[in-house]
Design a protein around this nucleic acid. Sequence first.
DNA 1: CTGAAAGCGCTAACAG
DNA 2: CTGTTAGCGCTTTCAG
Lengths: 335, 335
Amino acid sequence: MTLKDIAKASGVDVSTVSRSLSGSYGIHKETRERVLAIAAQLDYRPNRIAKGLATGRSHTLALIVSDIRNPFFADIARGAEDAAFGANCDLVLCNSDLDPQKQVHYIQSLQEKRVDGILMNSVGSLDRVQQEFLSSTGIPVVLLNRPRSESNFSTVTPDNAGGGFMAGSRLVELGHRRIVHLTGPREDSNLRERARGFLRSMTGREDVAPTVLHGDHTFAGGYEMMQAALAADPNITAVFAGNDVVAFGAVRAVIEAGLRVPDDISIIGFDDVDLATVIHPPLTTVHQPKYETGHIAVEMLLTMAERQGPPIAEHRVLEVELIERQSCAPPRRPA
Amino acid sequence: MTLKDIAKASGVDVSTVSRSLSGSYGIHKETRERVLAIAAQLDYRPNRIAKGLATGRSHTLALIVSDIRNPFFADIARGAEDAAFGANCDLVLCNSDLDPQKQVHYIQSLQEKRVDGILMNSVGSLDRVQQEFLSSTGIPVVLLNRPRSESNFSTVTPDNAGGGFMAGSRLVELGHRRIVHLTGPREDSNLRERARGFLRSMTGREDVAPTVLHGDHTFAGGYEMMQAALAADPNITAVFAGNDVVAFGAVRAVIEAGLRVPDDISIIGFDDVDLATVIHPPLTTVHQPKYETGHIAVEMLLTMAERQGPPIAEHRVLEVELIERQSCAPPRRPA
DNA sequence: CTGAAAGCGCTAACAG
DNA sequence: CTGTTAGCGCTTTCAG
C-alpha cells in the first residue's frame, strides 16, 4: 500500500496524493476529500522511513542513560517518552553503563539513523575528542549535568547546591554537629554541587564538624561508606547521602551496626525516588522533579531541532524541595 | 558525506563502493582497501534510513510496556536493550499505561516505521479487532503473558503456576493454615496461573483455609487488600502476594496495624525486584528471571524477523525459584 | 490546482 | 571484478 497505489485508485498523480495527505495548500477541496476517502478505505499507512529519507527528519529522539534499572532514570525516561509521544516522535533507549566505548558506539549509530536529538545523562566519561565528535555531529544534545569543559550542549539539572544547602541546614537545625556526607565520584558535577551547598550551610559554625566521603554511588557504595564512617568516628549523628540509593545502603549499614534510624543516626537523601516512601523508616530526602526533567529535556530537544543553524545552549535549573519523612530527628547523644 | 562522494573521491562507481563497504564478494582486494581507506579518511557514515528504505529492514525493535517506572519492566527493558544492542538494533520505548488507544497508536506508528519486531507486556486490554489488526501487520510479536484467545503471537513467561505452588507449599510447610493470596485483575493470565499453583499446593489439605483477594496490582492495592484481609479475618498468619510491589503494600499495612513481619504475619512475594532486599525485613519471594526474559524475547523477535513467511508462534516458559529471606516464619499463634 | 520529473542515499539485479 | 540501471516510497520544485 503506497502512495502510488492510492494514486492509481483515485486517478490522480502521486504528488497530488502526497499533497492531499499532508494537507498542503493548493488542492481542490473535492480532490482532497476523494483522495482521503480512498486512502482511508485502502487503509493506507505512510512509510515513515521513506518520508524520513525525503525530508531529512527522522522524528526519532534518543535517550542515553547509564542504566534504565536505576529508578531515577526510569522516571526521566517516562517523562521524556511522554513528551516525545506528544510530539509524535519516538524515543530509542540506550544503556551506556557510562562506558565510553558504548557511548561512542551509540552516538555513531544514532547519527547514522539521523535522530533529531539526544538526551544523555552525562558526557562525564567521554574524553575531549569524543565530546568534540558528538558536538560535531550537529545533533541537538541535552545533558542532565554540566560537563566540566565548556560546550554547546544544553542542560537541565536540579538545583543541586540549593538542595545540598537545605539538607545541611535541616540537620544543623535539628542539633546535629557531627555530620557526614556520603557521595560519589568527584567528576560528577551534580554531586559536586550538592556537596558544595551542604558545606556552605555550615560555614562559619565552628561547632559543626562536617566530613565528606567519596565512594560508589550505589546501594553497596552507601553501605560501605557508612561502615567506614562509623568506624572512623562512632560519634556521628547524621548523614546526608548524595542520593536515595546511597541513603538506603547507609540505612542498612546503620541497622546492621545495631543502631537505629533516626534514633541514633539521622539520614537524609536526595532524589525522592518511589522507594523512599516504601522503606522503613520512610526517608527524609530532597525531592527533585525527575519526570519533569525528562519532559522538559525533550521539549528543549524538539525546539532545538526545529531551529536551523548552530544550536544555542540553554541551561534550565529545576527547583528542589526538602521532603520531611521519618529518617531524621534531633540527636540523642550529646554532640 | 554519501556513497557518491566517496565514489567520486576514489574514482569508482557507487555500487562498487557499496559492495566494498558491505564486504560482499566479487571485489578486488585492492579496490576494496582503497575505497575503505578513503571512506575512513572522509569519515563516512552510512545513512541507515536510506539503507532501510532500500532493504526493507529497519533494524529497530520496539518495547511496549505499561510503565517503565515499574522496576519489573525496567529489568525487562535492560535485558531487551542489551540483546538489541548486541544485534546492532535499536529499541524504541513505549509506555502504554495499558490504554488500548495508546497501544493502537503505538502499533500503527511502529508499523509506519517498519520496525522489525515488537515486544509487548500484554495485549490483555486490546479487543478482538485490535488484536486482529496487530496480527495483520505481519510484524513479529512476543508477549510477556498468554493472551486469552488463541493467537499466533509468541510468548515468554515465567513458570507462574510453579511459582505459586512453591509459595503456597512453603507457607503450609511452615505451619500456616489461614493463608490469603493478594492478587490483581482476573484477566491477567500470569496472575491467574500464580493463583492456580498456589491453590493447588493445598488441595486435599482440609486444615488449610486459603482465600484469594483481587485488587489493584500496585503498592496501594496491596496496602488496601491487606487491610481488608485483616478486617475480614484477624487470624490470618500468612499472605502470598501476586508480586513484590503488592507485598510491599501489604507489609506497610501490617506494620500500621501494629503487627510485625514475620512474627505475626508471614509475607511472600513474586518477582524478586531489587527492592526486595532493601526493605525491612528483606522479602522472601519467588524469583523470576526478568533480565533474561527481555533478552530472550528480543532474540526470539530477531529470529522471527529473519525468517520469511508467516510467523510461527513459540512459547518459552522460564524457571522460577523461591528465595528465602526474612519475611516468613512459622506462625506464632496456634492456627 | 495538478501533473511531470528529479532526487533523498542506498541496494540489487543485470550486463559487460 | 565493476559499471549501468532500476528502484525503495515519499517530497518538492517546476511547469502547465
